[in-house]
Amino acid sequence: MSAPHHTPATTGEDEFVTIIGGDAEEIGQVFQAEGLAAKDFTIVHRIGRHRIAMAPGQQDMSALVGALIGGRLVAATYTRRAR
């Protein structure tokens, strides 16, 4: 798996890096390879399965992948606690 590409946040903005992989070990390897801990990144929540839903205006998969690779993808992650 290749390392994530991201563009730096502008001053005063939070920055997010999402690492997608087959298992927690792969994700940890990328986190270490990118030196994200030294750049003050911390995990927001535990590693687990995610479902990705596309917004209605994003049905063009090639444009979506291009935004992802180019570091321009905007995302929101929602969580629900176990019941």
Rank of each mutant, 00 (worst) to 15 (best):
M1E: 14
S2F: 06
S2Y: 04
S2L: 02
S2H: 00
A3I: 08
H5E: 12
H6M: 09
T7V: 05
T7H: 14
P8L: 00
P8S: 00
T10P: 09
T11M: 06
T11I: 14
V17F: 01
V17N: 02
I19D: 03
I19E: 01
G21P: 14
D23H: 11
E25K: 03
Q29L: 04
F31R: 01
A33T: 06
A33F: 01
E34V: 03
G35D: 10
A37T: 09
A37V: 11
A38C: 11
A38N: 11
A38Q: 14
K39F: 10
D40R: 06
F41L: 01
V44E: 12
V44L: 08
I47D: 11
I47N: 06
G48C: 09
R49Q: 11
H50M: 09
A55S: 12
Q58D: 14
D60N: 10
D60F: 11
M61W: 08
S62G: 01
S62H: 13
L64N: 06
G66Y: 08
L68Y: 01
L68A: 10
L68H: 06
I69V: 14
L73K: 03
V74A: 08
A75Q: 09
A75G: 10
Y78V: 12
T79H: 10
R80C: 09
A82V: 11
A82M: 13
